Amino acid sequence: MTDVYTLGAALGVVSSGRIRHDSEARLDVCGPEFTLAIGLSRLGHSAAFLGKVGADELGMRVRSILRGEGVDIADMRVDESATTGLLLKESRVGFAPQTSYYHAGSAGCRLSPGNVPIDRIAASRMLHVTGLTAALGRDALEAVRAAVGAAHTADVMISFSVAYRAELWNSVREAEEVLGELACASHLLFVHQDELDLVKPALTAEREVVVNRGQKGASVRADRMRYDAPVFSVPVVDPSGAEEAFAAGYISGALDGLTPPERLQRGAQLSAAATTSASEWQALPVRSDLFSFTAR
């Protein structure tokens, strides 16, 4: 049985300073579900990732990294007629990071309901999906819906990260409708405090809601109680992968049967670790690192 099944679009990321002037850049791979799957695998959980990549070098890199990290990619698809998506990230001291998505027509956007393995999701302990993948187009949204429907039918726990990116939606109203629908279908909801208004119908006492409060830490409402945890103080290189790393840590704690405060603690550990690297996933810890990280 797979611990966590997830699906999404992994893409290449090119990071630089001022893109119009810099002559050097860094190439990596990113994606929220990509980061989550690696984070869970490094902690000893079995994770499966479904996605589509192009028959190109970036697609090969995505598959090689996931395979090397012990993530199950048996369901991944290679689209011979499309390229792997790309993200340009501009980071300058004193400025908020700027990102530009080159998703249109990419292989990741072509993920469809027909690619979703109903039986494998039904045999998993948890399904994790994000609003970012739901925003990539009609086919990708229907694939997410098919996965959620399969999990619901099989009584598999559903985890959902809102992961709202305004530039990927046609309107706020469209985002509210889709994100609210998926949030209401979930058992475990990850939401940033700035996204709470997008998923108001899902903020009920029956649902486990984990709220990212930025520098104020994180909180969870579970069993009609609220618990809080502060952030870890670490040198921040790039905060981009922090939210999905947090979700990986929290889910790991849930799979291990930890209490809500202990889950928050582990989520905070992975979130902090992710920010210490220019990569969204390369600094994620293995299980043996957790104690030493706590002791700092």
Rank of each mutant, 00 (worst) to 15 (best):
E90I: 03
R20T: 14
L284I: 09
A202R: 07
G249M: 00
R63H: 05
A47I: 04
T153Q: 14
P32Y: 01
M1K: 06
P260G: 03
G94H: 08
S252K: 01
H192E: 12
A151F: 02
H187Q: 13
L7V: 09
F293Y: 11
E174Y: 04
I65V: 15
Y227S: 11
R221S: 10
D72K: 02
R125Y: 02
A254I: 07
L43W: 01
R221V: 12
T99F: 07
G267C: 00
S161M: 09
D3L: 01
E206F: 08
L141I: 08
S15D: 09
F190Y: 07
Y101Q: 08
S106W: 03
S240M: 13
V129Y: 05
M60C: 11
L141P: 08
A123Q: 11
P235S: 12
D139N: 15
S112Q: 06
F160A: 01
R213E: 12
V178T: 15
Q282P: 04
V211F: 04
E90M: 02
D79F: 10
W169S: 05
D75C: 05
C30K: 02
S16T: 15
V78Q: 01
P97I: 03
E206I: 10
D3G: 01
D223F: 12
G12D: 02
A154F: 01
R296P: 00
A247C: 11
A268E: 04
T2S: 07
L264G: 01
A147W: 04
A175H: 05
V71D: 11
Y102I: 04
A295H: 14
Y102C: 07
V199I: 12
K216N: 12
S271P: 06
D228L: 10
G217D: 03
V211A: 03
A104G: 07
P261W: 01
D56N: 06
A175S: 06
E167V: 14
V129K: 02
